[in-house]
Design a protein around this nucleic acid. Structure first.
Lengths: 220, 220, 220, 220
DNA sequence: AATGAATGAGTTTTCATTCAT
DNA sequence: CATGAATGAAAACTCATTCAT
């Protein structure tokens, strides 16, 4: 950091006043933090509003309910990005081995290592208590995610690069390691006892290596 | 009521005298079922008491708070069986490939398909709210589990049957698939969208196959 | 009041302690007062509980919701008494003229002049905002009331004591005056401008006279 | 936007210039409709503003509070037409029987079947919350109404066409049926359970018949 | 004059915990 | 020991009102 860089105030944002365009984003950011940190039920909307620098009433101006707020958080951070990822997959040029490896690494960069990964753990914890939200998540996140991996594997089989396997169970060769890492991120104590010697990147590389060794057609 | 009407005992055990010692155990059993089924917050102490056949007040006679009840539940149900398993491992005769496969299958039979699965998911969900009990779980379950797998892999490497890998990350080649299946058991909707076409046994077999394909030394 | 009458404490009731049997009645009395006085929406359950000398939580021990509390009030004060009134009607001996007169007078004594009459006004005011309660009231109070009057008139026609009229509209010859008096009781200012010169008993007598003069078969 | 694009006027009336004076009236009209339809509490000021085609803030420019808006609505819609009716009564030629019948029918046409009915019900509901406006209503509507009926009956007695009765209570022989019908109009469900078989005109006719049969001097 | 973004007070209901009996 | 009646804190959501623009 160069020396005399003038200290830009964290925000020149007037806390009072009309900032209609900025509000939703600020609220979603605050909500993501709190939801991930404390869970859905334990997060109070007033707290979300406070963290975003507005009053409780203002939050309800932009999101009609706590549930909708949560859904919006999920949409912004995960669900809404599948369209882009699907496109990326369609236009991928290269071997399926590379594609699989790319999936592992990209997932880590875009989801696993971000706050979004807290949402997965959150959903797992609260699914039973909020069936409607769970259904939303299943439909908007879980389903598309499975489809994405399924297509990756199908592509590999079609091209003769991956062994022909029962897709229904094979998707979990990719998903299980990712999901476990996701949960680990939120609760490392219970998943990764020696956290200090653990490197997510190394984990990702090893899991990708492993799954490919297993999936690759034997070149004899 | 006519005098000598034979008193049909509601249970073979005499009502008074018997209970006193059994109470805590009955409460813990009831609590385990409900905690695992509905989660910590959604389980009401009154329900636990009712299921154990006592009044709400009585529960608080044995456990000073809901939190303490929860801790007691976890502690009671984590009677470390690792000593036994470690022994089993020590005395295992056969290739390490077979041993790995045996681990996958035995884990499913003894843990994955049992109530213990629910306990694992429960811990994951509540670890943040109960750091103390999470620590206990880490020490009594997670650590020993990691050690067990670590020894299995080490054995394979020592015997030249498995590739030499960084154990710190390689343990997760075995653990991640198992843990994911564990969490799936409690919340299938979010993990396994096509549950009707999913077979845990098939999943176990495929994951074991896969990890072995990846771990085996190439006979080239 | 005689001089040295020992001052009996308004209640020897211990405000704290277990009084399961007495609670519902005390709560219903308090609720009737407040509902009638302030309306359904404006009455806060906490206030009801306080007036009954218990805490908010206790109220919900006996009534699962505000709506059910209200329904119970209506049942105790009106709906639950139709069975008795129907019986009284069946066993009435005397001319139908006398019976009609008896209805007017009895209604006044048992409903019109009591706090129960406030419930009618209350329902009229709040029906649009609480459709479920309105439906309950229609079914439990309005319908039975109409049926009762209908049977009275039918009896008179059958016995040749009352003119044959379209029952559908004739019931209101009796009901309209009663309902108007009911509403007047709660809001005299808007219904009876000269309240000081108004006597409900005189009103009842005159309306009964009038309706009978009109209903009676001309003795030529 | 290209320069001379002809501006299609949204209405024939020039947007600016016209409105200013009309605003309060439009707001009052919207408010009347909504208050009568949904009641005072259930009517949201934003809805009133929207219906009048202005923003919420604008409403508060003209009326300092919801309560004041309500008062203004009542005041505006009680333009006393009693002077005109009194004249009509003075100049009535015909028997008092006919006059009474004329009163019933005319009331229905001019009041009972119009929005004014809703205003009456509204006042009954809100009288307790708005004692000041209730007093206004009593003075402007209730009192004159009572006086009108009183004079009708007095006329009949003076002419020997109606029985001599205590006017103080006799007015309600006419008013009670009308008021009940008025309230019924706004809340039929609670007043007229068999609405489909009910005809207001038939009700009016029967009540008029009845009151006259009872009021007429016996020609013996 | 007009707008509409922002505010925050106000209420029902649940449930862990207490304690008189 | 056991009971169960009583307690009261806690949180989502609405909407009249304000005021910066």
């Amino acid at each position: 950091m160069s020396a005399a860089l003038p200290c830009i105030p964290t925000s020149a944002i007037p806390k009072r006043g009309r900032r209609k365009d900025a509000r939703p984003g600020e609220l979603l950011d605050a909500a993501l933090d709190l939801f991930v940190d404390k869970g859905y039920a334990a997060t109070r909307v007033e707290e979300v509003a406070a963290r975003a620098g507005v009053s409780k009433g203002t939050l309800f101006l932009y999101f009609p309910s706590k549930q909708e707020l949560f859904k919006a958080v999920v949409r912004q951070n995960i669900a809404g990005r599948f369209a882009e990822w699907d496109l990326e997959l369609e236009s991928y040029v290269g071997t399926s081995q590379d594609l699989v490896r790319y999936c592992f690494e990209t997932w880590w960069e875009r989801i696993g290592s971000t706050k979004a990964s807290g949402l997965g753990k959150l959903m797992l914890s609260e699914a039973n208590n909020f069936p409607e939200i769970a259904e939303f998540y299943r439909h908007e996140v879980v389903e598309p995610g499975h489809q994405l991996i399924r297509r990756v594997l199908q592509r590999g089989m079609d091209r003769g690069e991956l062994r022909a396997l029962d897709l229904e169970h094979a998707v979990y060769l990719v998903l299980a390691p990712l999901m476990f890492l996701m949960f680990s991120q939120s609760t490392p104590a219970l998943c990764i006892p020696n956290a200090e010697r653990f490197s997510p990147q190394e984990y990702i590389r090893l899991q990708a290596d492993n799954v490919l060794q297993g999936l690759c057609v034997r070149s004899a």
